[in-house]
Every structure is written in C-alpha cells, then in structure tokens.
Design a protein around this nucleic acid. Structure first.
Lengths: 202, 202
DNA sequence: TCAGCTAATGACTCTTAGGTCAGTAATTGT
DNA sequence: ACAATTACTGACCTAAGAGTCATTAGCTGA
C-alpha cells in the first residue's frame, strides 16, 4: 500500500490557507504575493485555493478580518472586568498589550491596511467599526472611570485616546521600515504613558 | 501649416514625468499604477518615459527622492537660524510645519515607503540618512538648546525626539485610511506638543 | 467492496503590464 | 534649404500571474 498523495480535509483547509496567506502577505505584501505561492505554503494546489476563496481579493479580506478582532475583543473584555485602579491598569496590562503590538500580527495587518486599504473601502469600514472605534472607546472608558473615581482630573486628553496609540503607530511604522535599529519602542511607549498619566492625574 | 504633433523638450521631460508619476502613485500606490498611465498623464508616450527612466523601479526612486529632501532641509535651516526661544519656536514654526505634514506630499511619500519600502532597502537607507536622522537631530537640537538656556530641564524626552513625531505619524496613517472623519489632527498634534512642553519646561 | 460523491489536482487559457525597438518627425547647424 | 541629429512615437514582444476546468483519486456508506 502506497501513501495517499493527499488527504481530504475540508474542515481545516480554509484556516490553513488563510494562515499561509498571512505569512506570505506579511513578507511580500499583498500585490507582490502570488496566489500560487500561498497555495504551495499551505501544501495545497492553486485550484483548491480557488475552491475556498473566489478571488485573491476575497482571500485578502478573509485574512485581514480574522487576525485582529479576537485580540481586540480580549483587551476590551479585560478593560471591562478589571478591578484595578485605572492608573494601575494602564501601567500594567494595557501597557504590556501596547508594547506587544509592534511585534505582533497586528502590526502586519496595519501595514497591509496602509498599503491596500485605500482600494478596499468596505474593509476599512469593517475595521473602523470593529477594531478602531472599539479600541478607542475602551481607552476612553478607562480614563472616564479614573475621573469618576477621583484618580484623574478632566483634561484635553479625555477625547483624544489616540494619544495613547500614537507611539504604538510610530513604533509599528518604524519597525516595518528600519527594523529594530536605533529606536527602543518599549521605552517610547512607556514614556508616552508616563507623560499622559502625569498630565491627567488628579 | 498644421500643428506639430509634439514638441521636443528634453529639459523638462524628466520633471514632468516624475510629477505625473507622483500623482499616479499617490492615488493608486506603486504596484497598481501602470507605467503607461504615468506616460499618458505626462502627455508623453510610454517609449519616451523609458528613455528617461530605465525601469519602473528607477522612476519610483526618482519620485520618492525629490519630494521630501528640500522640505526637510528648509526646516533644518529654520531651526538653525531662528532667534526665538525654543518654546516659541516649537509652538510657532515647528508646530505649523508638523500640522501641515498630513496634507502634504510628505504624507504620500510616507505611505509609499510603508508599502514599498521593504522591497527597496537602498531607498530606505537613503531616507534614513537624509531625512529621518536629520529631522530627529534637528528636534533634539532645539530641546538641547532649550536646556542650555535654562528654558527646559533635562528629562527622558531628550533622547526621544520621536515623541514629537508620533502624533504626526498617527495623523498621516489615520488620514490615509479614514480621511478626515472623526479625528482633528491639528488638535492631536497641538495637544501632544502641550504635553511635551509642560513636561520639559524648567 | 465497490459505487457514488466530491475534495483535490495540475495543465490550461487569457489578460495585463513591463519593457523594446524600428521608424518618424521636430529641431539644429551650416 | 536641406542634411544630420535625436527626441519621440506606437506597435510589438514577452513574462507573469490570476483564474478555470476536465480529470483523478481519497473517502464514505450501503
């Protein structure tokens, strides 16, 4: 009896293909990744890939959607469940989360969105609704809670949660362009958090 | 006498083509812009384009190089010539410059670099040397001068000039993804500058 | 165990877009 | 005025890569 040349694994294929696509897109970007290479990485023929994804673009969207949402939802759950003071939460779990972003799949997605987003408005809409606005709202909720508890005082930062994310964005871009050279992204993020806390503390 | 079908304008062609390419890349990104479209926009045949630029990639590099350098050099000259106090300079000319970035050609170049940079390491090297490091050094010089004059006190911000640029980066990315919706980039940048000044003022 | 179903293959087509080049017409010098 | 020069054109070539489909072979249930 000879080994079968392939196995039928209808259930697992979509995820395997999407994972392979993620890796390939991360390395080469969307436009210069060949569909055939994705198939090869997934250990599958090109034809099969087209059985599960109608076009390359649909594959792209599937990939981009399933990476970040879980992560963001986890963070939000954390925010809403914690018993810590707002300051402790920001210094602890939130800080750690933010510092992880530049080395995580999230960073890849951000780069992909910057490159390809403008040609996929529906995808951007999806992201804005399910990731960006949720994330910003969560940050705002922490601050608000701090104010209610008397930890923080009201300030201009209240409706600019973006300030917490700016150094993260900077780090993501820097890393994607220049690698790890000459910028300590952890320190950048930490320092910004210190600045912000110093400013809003009561 | 009929109009000539074209004029020979050897001197002007390269700039005209580069300008057309800039516009096209800004709209569609590098990968999905066709060389022929660049030629058409420049009012020129594809063949002529290839007379002045050996490949599409070379065209890309030419475009990307000639946009930002002048601008940055202008800013640096400003920094080194000003008689203002560091604080006044930061609140005035520097702030204005930074707030202009998200709507300027510089933003386009940043987007192009994020998308295509990883596949053009020499271009990134060029940018790091001629734009990024110079810009960061200029910011650092302003702070340093403030310290020497007793306006500012030494702090963690001294060797993180990136903090001044983080909200700009954030704004560039935000704008390129979501347009002008729901983020006042001027305010973001202003607020960050206020935070930083409050922190380093003596 | 074998017939029917369908997951999976891989060779194929077709379009797109980067790059070439032989020829043409605007310009320049004499 | 008219060669000689060369900026410029546009039809062409070719590679690459997205997407298709007739065929094959693993699986499943009777």
């Amino acid at each position: 009896m000879s080994k079968p040349r392939y196995q039928r694994r209808k259930e697992d294929r979509p995820r395997e293909i999407a994972d392979a696509a993620f890796d390939a897109f991360a390395e080469k970007g969307y436009a210069s990744t060949r569909v055939e290479e994705v198939a090869t990485r997934a250990g599958v023929s090109k034809g099969l890939l087209y059985l599960y994804f109608k076009t390359k673009e649909e594959l792209f969207k599937a990939v981009v959607k399933n990476v970040v949402v879980r992560r963001v939802d986890a963070l939000i759950a954390l925010v809403d469940k914690t018993e810590q003071s707002s300051e402790a939460f920001i210094r602890g779990p939130a800080s750690r989360f933010l510092k992880d972003v530049p080395d995580s799949p999230v960073a890849v997605i951000i780069r992909l969105l910057i490159s390809e987003g403008p040609r996929h408005p529906d995808l951007l809409e999806y992201y804005y609704r399910n990731v960006v606005s949720k994330g910003l709202a969560a940050v705002q909720r922490i601050i608000q809670r701090g104010i209610e508890r008397g930890e923080f005082r009201p300030s201009a930062v209240d409706d600019l949660p973006h300030l917490f994310l700016a150094p993260v964005m900077m780090s993501v871009v820097w890393r994607s362009l220049f690698g790890k050279r000459s910028l300590d992204t952890d320190k950048l993020i930490d320092t910004q958090i210190e600045l912000l806390l110093a400013h809003i503390k009561a």
